[in-house]
Design a protein around this nucleic acid. Structure first.
Length: 462
RNA sequence: GUCCCCAUCGUCUAGAGGCCUAGGACACAACCCUUUCACGGUUGGUACCGGGGUUCGAAUCCCCGUGGGGACGCCA
């Protein structure tokens, strides 16, 4: 049974990189009929918040990345970690270290100054025949993992291939703090073991943790899972995403009018490929996705391509669902949506030409609010030569059959009578009715409105 | 500084030694369509980081550079 996990720390929202990691873990489990576990790594009490947990879950729900187990909270598993810690101590795989924070800082500074890799010097590490210093009074120890000093740790990374790191490069990391609480690398290992995770799919900022985790796993007598390290996603500008620069919540995409299937499709294609396939459903993705064909190099986010995909999915979506998504956006603007014109009809006319739901709301809004066209824009298009034709149109509008072809015919007869080209009348009509110079076919726009509203809006020009 | 990773059009990528005169998509340009703006359609330009090998043959394998990124916390 394949089991994957997504293990965010709840210190902020679910961003695009985390979402892709979750997506790949989820899809891999789906592909193999396995299970996808959600685990909340909340051991950093100072920075973890319930609001962040909720934000992450909201993001995953919006994207439809459902977990099969969890969420498990590491803070609720403290007893288990401490038990494992005792075991490590008893087995001689871990030891108490009394070096203080200050001493450590000084040591690192000195090593860095010498151009060395900062690392623990092993003062308190027990060795056969070695006499340990006497523990200083009043200093609470931390627990360190006794990392092997010889040989190499290697694994076959499912994305990057074989990675090998010499144990000599690794120092004895702290697995429990002075207050006795376990640290990240230890919790992860115990959890992955207990939760029977078979494939650890995560960001490649964890590559350096992997050899340490493998060593701990072995010390614990646990089976080592397979690892797949996903390269990072860079911002639109090629820069690293961070809280300070460019990182936004996936829910921001919701705000900005993106459909979850567009975001999902875009993310799936970022760092993974299936030949030339660009547009596909999540069902299709799960059928294809197998950790093969994941790019080992970093990928730059491209909003324009996301926009294109979003526009594509909006065109594919039926008007009723779109109306359901646009209506709350109009309500948020305090626009009261009435039955005439119907929101679905407006959407049907506009969805071909916009690329997000907010643009759809922008287009729909003008049908429901009182409108005063921009005077300058109107003056520019409502030329003296157009006025007689407009007057004819206003006269004719009371009688004409209320459907686009008949209205179109009326427009043609009005311009014909005055020897004008279509845009001469179409443009002022657009502006008077919608306030905008760019709209769909003007006869269709006119037909959307109730007749009285058209009469009223055009009267304003007289 | 040390260790690790990465390197094909502007961007996402195809490519697992001959199928590559390097393919697709976004973006861009031109044209067509057209009632404005879009949509759509057609066409076009643009890339294998550099240098050495290996080989009959390398975008693909190896080495060295160079460039970029990551890690080096009692954070996760």
């Amino acid at each position: 049974m394949i089991r994957t996990r997504f293990a965010p720390s709840p210190t902020g929202f679910l961003h695009i990189g985390g979402a892709r990691t979750a997506l790949f873990s989820w899809a891999f489990a789906r592909h193999h009929g396995g299970q996808f576990v959600l685990r909340i790594e909340d051991t950093d009490v100072a920075r973890s918040t319930p609001a962040a947990v909720q934000a992450i879950i909201d993001g995953m729900n919006w994207l439809g990345l459902a977990h099969d187990e969890g969420p498990f909270y590491q803070m609720q598993r403290m007893d288990r970690y401490k038990e494992a810690l005792r075991q490590m101590l008893a087995d001689g795989h871990a030891y108490c270290c009394y070096t203080t924070q200050e001493e450590l800082d000084a040591m690192r500074e000195e090593q860095r100054a010498k151009g060395l890799k900062p690392r623990y010097d092993g003062t308190w590490r027990p060795e056969p025949g070695k006499t340990l210093p006497t523990p200083p009074a009043g200093v609470l120890p931390v627990i360190r993992f006794k990392n092997p000093t010889e040989g190499v740790v290697a694994w076959n990374d499912l994305v990057k291939g074989r990675i090998e790191i010499a144990n000599a490069e690794l120092d004895d990391l702290i697995i429990a703090r002075q207050d006795g609480t376990p640290t990240y690398n230890f919790c992860v290992v115990v959890d992955d073991w207990d939760m029977k995770i078979t494939h650890v799919i995560r960001g490649d900022d964890h590559v350096n943790n992997t050899p340490r985790q493998i060593n701990i796993l072995k010390a614990l007598g646990a089976e080592v899972p397979l690892y797949a390290h996903l390269s990072m996603i860079l911002g639109d500008d090629g820069q690293k995403l961070s809280k300070r620069h460019g990182a936004v919540s996936v829910m921001q995409y919701h705000e900005d009018g993106y459909l979850p299937e567009a975001v999902l499709n875009y993310l799936a294609r970022l760092g993974w490929s299936h030949g030339d396939d660009e547009v596909f459903s999540m069902e299709q993705f799960c059928a294809w996705f197998d950790l093969d064909h994941i790019t080992p190099s970093a990928a730059q986010f491209n909003t324009e391509k996301l926009n294109w995909l979003n526009a594509h999915y909006i065109k594919q979506t039926d008007n009723a669902r779109l109306a359901g998504l646009v209506r709350p956006r109009l309500e948020a603007r305090e626009v009261s949506v009435t039955d005439t014109p119907s929101l679905e009809a407006i959407i049907g006319l506009y969805k071909e030409r916009i690329s997000n739901l907010n643009e759809l709301a922008d287009a729909a809004e003008v049908f429901y609010i009182d409108l005063t066209p921009n005077a300058e824009l109107l003056a520019q298009h409502l030329t003296p030569e157009a006025k007689p034709a407009l007057a004819d149109f206003i006269a004719g509008i009371r009688e004409v059959a209320w459907e686009a072809p008949a209205i179109g015919a009326l427009i043609k007869s009005c311009i014909g009578a005055h020897g004008l080209k279509m845009p001469k009348l179409a443009m002022p009509l657009r502006i008077l009715l919608t306030g905008q110079a760019q709209t769909p076919s003007v006869d269709a726009v006119v037909a959307l409105f109730p007749r009285e509203v058209v009469i009223k809006r055009l009267a304003a020009a007289a």
